[in-house]
Design a protein around this nucleic acid. Structure first.
Lengths: 207, 207
DNA sequence: GTCTATAGGTAGATAGAC
DNA sequence: GTCTATCTACCTATAGAC
């Protein structure tokens, strides 16, 4: 229950920045949410940009660390793919507007700003998984697929529903509870979809 | 070659708003891009919000019209799915940052604002396709799949790569030309992926 | 460390000449 | 219709009291 001021500011800043974006955020709103005044904000974080970078870096690291963790593990390809879906969806369910925040800021801001942010943290690297898919594909262990597009398909199915949530919810008129319920079903749905999409013909005949 | 002032403004506004978002856009920047001054902007569009709504409505209509057009056609399910991928990707390739713009604004702005925008234009309605998938699934014409998640998977694979472009390009270090080249390959890659993911076991044994 | 008050700059919008 | 000049409001950041 002991939350110091700096932590209170960061908590508030995470919420506001991730919801409104950098340009749409007012320092006043962060101060209000944190239960302090504007002056104190600048005492802890000299500028709006400083505070934003702290929040964004943290968010980006959360995503990229998790992604790298699963992408670089040495397991067999289908196991690995399934663990990507499982673990990545866990992260997204716990932080539903993380990907929207990141993608939005990378899209809105200048390239210099992006480059600076990117240099702060290791980028996710899918090349090992792509290589694995390529080899297994050659060896006939999975169906002949384009490895790059396959990885992209997997990421798409996991992340997109969270980014496009407002759009999707208005399309099908789902309340928040129902939407989250569907997201929790997605792990199974995505893994099933992928399995059938990439399994070799012999195996699919057996199923 | 005859472009009147209103059209020049709209062209400039499309570019700036879709790149920087509503909050990040300066009227001055739009005026500069259009080659006119701020005063004239307000002569044609009373407020920044008026101008934004004109631009956003147009963008949203472009997406939803195309989507509805394919979603509501009366063709057999696999044909329909393939035409969604084909036609939707054509639209996205012609307007690469359309989805990022829309998703970003729906995410950043208040619910009241979103509701107002949504009421302006018919929403895309996937229920017919969901129903078709359900029936074909029951009838054994395709594999037993969850129709909702299947539709979501299809949309995800089409749209996500465009929304997450800056993120993806930095992950794999692709220049713009290479990235666009990969996007043009996606039609085939996605259709292949879907086909194998939802085809019934009998058919897959034959392939 | 925390507050109030305010400086300094910028952005949206208007007024008025041409 | 198009321009320049300006008003007004707001927002980041700082100064200074406690």
């Amino acid at each position: 229950m002991e939350t110091n001021t700096e932590e209170k500011i960061l908590i508030a800043a995470r919420e506001i920045f991730s919801q409104r974006g950098f340009a749409g955020t007012r320092m006043q709103e962060i101060a209000d949410r944190a239960g302090i005044n504007k002056g104190l904000l600048h005492y802890y974080f000299k500028t709006k940009e400083t505070l934003f970078k702290a929040v964004f870096k943290e968010a980006f690291l959360q995503i990229s660390r998790k992604l790298n963790e699963v992408l670089s593990s040495e397991r067999p390809v289908m196991e690995k793919v399934e663990s990507i879906v499982d673990e990545y969806l866990d992260l997204l369910l716990a932080n539903p507007n993380l990907p929207g925040f990141i993608v939005n800021e990378l899209h809105t801001n200048t390239e210099a700003f992006i480059a600076e942010i990117m240099s702060m943290s290791e980028r996710p690297d899918p090349s090992l998984l792509i290589m694995q898919l390529h080899l297994d594909s050659q060896a006939g262990k999975i169906r002949q697929v384009d490895p790059f597009h396959t990885v992209l398909n997997i990421l798409s199915m996991c992340v997109f529903p969270f980014i496009a949530r407002p759009m999707l919810q208005s399309m099908v008129h789902l309340d928040d509870a129902t939407y989250l319920h569907l997201m929790r079903q997605r792990k199974a749905a995505i893994k099933d979809f992928i399995r059938h999409a990439i399994q070799s013909p012999d195996q699919s005949a057996m199923s």
